[in-house]
Amino acid sequence: MNDKDLLVCRCEEISDEEIREAIRQGARTITGIKRRTRAGMGLCQGRTCQRLVARILAEETGMKPEDIDPGTDRPPVKPVSFGVLGGVAND
């Protein structure tokens, strides 16, 4: 991955070429691309790159935007420490 590459996922530094390669290997959903490349696995959880990945997927496969199911949102939708999540932050 050299500097001239176009980074689509900022958190994990994944280029648009790596995303196209994942599609060539059979990914047909945003989640499939995430699992193969890590695009969307970073701290922002796809808030920055998910819709860009969808556009690349539509262009590479010809799928219509409404047929591309978006990635799955899961808690925590914003990072939270183990201490706060576990309710042990203050002691």
Partner: peptide, 29 residues
């Protein structure tokens, strides 16, 4: 950047993109 070491600064400036994370009084991120 934790992996590549490349410099990063603010991007969205309203708490969405997580690019601006620093350590404050020992509390990371």
């Amino acid at each position: 950047h934790e992996e590549s070491g490349k410099p990063r600064g603010i991007y969205c400036n309203i708490g969405h993109c997580m690019e601006c994370r620093v350590t404050v009084n020992g509390q990371p991120n």
